[in-house]
Design a protein around this nucleic acid. Sequence first.
RNA 1: GCGGGCGUGGCGGAAUGGUAGACGCAACGGACUUAAAAUCCGUUGGGGGCAACCCCGUGCCGGUUCGAGUCCGGCCGCCCGCACCA
Length: 911
Amino acid sequence: MQDRYNAREAEPRWQKAWDARGIFATRNDDPRPKYYVLEMFPYPSGRIHMGHVRNYTMGDVLARFMRARGHNVLHPMGWDAFGLPAENAAMERKIPPRAWTYQNIAAMKAQLQTMGLSLDWSREFATCDPAYYKHQQKMFLDFMRAGLAEREKRKVNWDPVDMTVLANEQVIDGRGWRSGAVVEQREMNQWVFKITKYSQELLDALDTLDRWPEKVRLMQRNWIGRSEGLLIRFALDQKTAPSGESEVKVFTTRHDTLFGAKFIGVAPDHPLAQAAAAKNPALAAFIAECKRHGTAQAIIDTQEKLGFDTGIRALHPFDPAWTLPVYVTNFVLMEYGTGAIFGCPAHDQRDLDFVNKYGLGVTPVVCPPDVDPKSFVITDVAYDGDGRMINSRFLDGMSVDEAKEEVARLLEHATLPVPARPRESGEPPPPYPPPQAGEGKGGGRLRGNERVEPVAERQVNFRLRDWGISRQRYWGCPIPVIHCENCGVVPVPDADLPVALPEDATFDKPGNALDHHPTWKHVTCPQCGGPATRETDTMDTFVDSSWYFARFTDPWNESAPTTRPVVDRYLPVDQYIGGVEHAILHLLYSRFFTRAMKVTGHIGIDEPFAGMFTQGMVVHETYQTAAGEYVTPAEVKIEAGPNGRRAHLIATGEEVNIGSIEKMSKSKRNTVDPDDIIGEYGADVARWFMLSDSPPDRDVIWTEEGVQGSWRFVQKLWRQVAEAAELAEAAAVCGSRQAEEAAVLALRKAAHGALAKVTGDIPRLRFNRCVAHIYELSNAFQASLTAARQAGGISPAYAAAAREAAEIMVLLFSPMMPHLAEECWAALGKSGLVAESPWPDAEQALLVEDTVTLPVQINGRKRAEVTVSRSATPAEIERAVLELDDVKRALDGRAPKKVIVVPQRIVNVVA
RNA sequence: GCGGGCGUGGCGGAAUGGUAGACGCAACGGACUUAAAAUCCGUUGGGGGCAACCCCGUGCCGGUUCGAGUCCGGCCGCCCGCACCA
């Protein structure tokens, strides 16, 4: 046996051995209970980074563990292969997106394979493969038929640099999430998925996802943004209203404050604002000014609330003699509610700031408890708490909730004439539950000869918008529809799928290469046979990743996206692992998509991911030269001494500044290449270090010292196992020694204790604790071996115990360091592979002690210990404790006030 | 502004309301070595004492409890998410 473990030589050897036996290929007819482990599949950028190493190691530990526990584990991998970088590469390097993508996939796959992951590569696919996206196109058509995919004229976020439309979620601080360019608003025809049909359901079902991080559920809850309120129609004073306008609809959650109303505020792009601006150049200028600020200058906007009096007056719903001025305001959003509010300054800070600026007055209508209504005034801090209604006529004395109910009740029974002109835009989003046929807009009932509608209706509003999926890009899944002058929008017949991307697109001008292609879009209409054009928009890449987890269950099915019995058996994913940056978009879209697939018969469940885990980032120190340039960790040598750490450039010896710890990034140059680490130390060391120290959901700091510590531990394990193997061989020839019974028992207890702890911690993904338990076992093992060596002889019983401990230890670290485990397993003379060995069961008898040592506290401070029989009664324990010298001294002859005995835990004497 | 999370040695972090600091890193001492590396053995929250031991200590201030890092209330700080959301 070698005295050093050679990872570079051993790791590829064991990878080949696993491969040869095909042990990670999952069979769909395997009858054992299934367990689906999935890590978020990567975008094929060309290189893996440490974040991937961490993510995939965690999933692999779980997969190997569950496999050893007898499950039919599905652990697949694929490629999120569509996306803009491929087109950028095409432009910059004249390499077609497809070639670039597959080249990257090959490189990254080779890297992943050096990690020794227990992946079923037979299920691998890339989303850019027509064999994948043809099913996606099929589902798009199914969604269309089910009313879940529609074409709408929409105001969209246009990224002028990427020349594409972005979803609201992809606009961050008014800038494109990828390009960083300031986003413009444009009206365009867009395909959308009707995710808002599921707003309530997506919200409600969050409560059932008990194995998701609370943080992620909360983020989704906020994103969906449900609010209950009242939609109130304010009639306009006809003398002041623009022609054709008779009312303004307002959504409010504070209808209790209606008697504190001082103005109506409408968004700059509200129809009423537009109508008023038509005859008022100053107003038009104000609106243009608002729009110009619009997105980017959030900071300035938050400070100053601006408005412009339209001259229009609205009638108070409870008092036609009371009119409210209608202002165009810069703090009301067209995108939320109806794009109009009524302002109650006393109980809303924004309204108060506004009113104070324009001198519209303040009337408090909710009086806090324990405050005298007569002296209650509001000057510059609004009161948004609970209280009793005041200054509110018939509402006076009610609570906020009672007042809300009363206002809603009265106004939903009052009526106003139906406006003459149907609204075009500014309609509220669809109410929940959806209106029944025959109800809704344009309806109303008759009063005399006049059509009337209620003044108000209770409404639930959601922040969530429909999901716009059209992208003006080449490298994405084509939307399978055809535009015909005669027939309109015609779905591509199923038989003609896939609508494949042309291979010969060119990328020499900005915009959509698919649209620029000379021939691709010109087709005949499937309905009338006349000339027609293909849709040249492709789908948002989030569509691709919204169902890949389902496709993995049967990627061989050529005729359908899924095979029902198979997909229904494997889903939901038991444990999904990925970065928190996908907490909203990807996870919410996938949840919607699964429901849409259910409606269209492709799947039998609602929730795709039963367990979700968000892992932390990999962070690293930064290094800067005196000139302020960042340098990479590889260029730096660190020296540590009692006076701290110093860093020098290896090349020149120049001292560099050790800077803050940050997420690994190219710009800070603080990345560490997984290839370098695996090449130098081996995959097991990289894997082990990723699991050590930090809890998996927190950031982990990558340090050279830590990696070296892991490397030393690998060598230590190897030596220990080797020593145990030699002991076992020697056992037959050694004479027996009875004195080692205690050593045998202690060693066995250490091994089985660690086994029990690791077995409990892996399914909870508490890998840092698993690592600590394995260190502890190794330390105990080391101490035991040293003591045995010094005792001068080894009994067969001890040799057997050492061997058992070694085997358990190897099995315990095998999910984390699978190559080393195989090498050790072979050294122990075991036949077969660790990867195919069952997980051992701890012997319960070894987990309990015959005697227990309890800490003894006096007045809550630990002062002594008492060792008693495990089965001792509290009375017996109390008697033993009172005999202790320390306790006697503390009591000084007096009787204790109280003695608390917590069985198996602690004793507290109250003196 | 709203919501959530976190705050423990030199550092990363352990600790079902029950012995605070497991385990690792770093540092220091010793053994082995001509020497170094590697390895092995030990020390390492602060203060006091010759010692047995004693006192203090989980961001700060209070509270509940026999007992609080953990629960409750109020501050302070950091991180994350959302944000004129009506």
